[in-house]
Amino acid sequence: MSDISTAWLKPYLEGKEREKMRLLYFTDTHLRGNTPQSRLDNLPETLKSKLEEVVKLAADLKVDYILHGGDFFDSPSPSLAVSGDLLECFRQFSCPVYAISGNHDLFGGNIHSLNRTLLGFLHRLGFIRLVLPGEKIYLKKHDTVLQLTGQPYHYEIDQRDPHLDYAVKKENADLALHMVHGMLLERPLPKEANFTLIDRIKDTEADITLCGHYHSGLGIIEKEGKIFANPGALVRLSNDKQEMTRRVGVILVKLEGEKPVCEFIPLISARPGNEVLTREEIEHRSDLRIKLANFIKEVRQNAEFERMNARRIIEEIARGEAIDKEAKEEALKRIAWVEEELRSKRVREIR
Rank of each mutant, 00 (worst) to 15 (best):
D165F: 11
K169G: 01
K16A: 11
R319V: 12
P190F: 11
F195M: 12
A206S: 09
I296G: 02
F295M: 11
F121G: 01
L175N: 01
L80V: 11
C89K: 12
R334T: 07
D174S: 10
E263Y: 00
Q37C: 08
K202P: 00
E281Q: 13
K345C: 11
I350D: 11
I282S: 10
R279M: 13
D207W: 02
Q147T: 03
E192F: 13
W337Q: 13
S94D: 15
L31V: 05
F295R: 03
P272Q: 11
G182E: 10
H213Y: 10
N230G: 08
F107V: 12
I282D: 14
G219M: 10
R271E: 15
R116C: 06
G257R: 07
I282L: 14
L255E: 06
K333N: 13
K56T: 11
L43S: 02
E280K: 14
D161Y: 09
I128G: 00
Q151V: 07
R236K: 15
Y138G: 06
P231H: 09
A7K: 11
F93Q: 08
R39N: 07
T278S: 15
K16Q: 09
G33N: 05
G217T: 03
A318E: 04
E339G: 02
I201N: 02
L31R: 05
P78S: 06
K56H: 12
H178G: 05
I290P: 00
G225R: 07
V299S: 10
V54D: 03
D199V: 06
F90L: 15
V347Y: 08
R285S: 08
D165C: 06
E321Y: 13
H123D: 15
E329Y: 07
E224H: 13
F228V: 09
Y65N: 05
F93D: 06
E329W: 07
L164R: 14
E298K: 15
I66W: 01
L119F: 05
P76D: 06
G217I: 06
F228H: 04
T117W: 02
I265S: 00
P78D: 03
S75N: 11
L267V: 08
L9F: 02
A193V: 13
S269L: 03
F305D: 07
R247Q: 15
D85A: 14
L139M: 10
L189T: 11
L185H: 13
D143T: 12
P272Y: 12
T46Y: 08
R187V: 11
E171P: 00
K291R: 15
I208Y: 02
L177S: 01
H68A: 02
L118D: 01
H213V: 01
N42M: 05
I137M: 08
A59S: 13
K254F: 00
V299Q: 12
T46F: 04
P260K: 01
S216C: 08
G33P: 00
D60K: 09
L218Q: 07
V55D: 06
I4T: 09
I314Q: 01
G70M: 05
K328V: 14
T117V: 04
D41I: 05
N230L: 08
R247K: 15
A233F: 07
V250M: 08
R236F: 04
P133F: 03
K48L: 14
P96M: 09
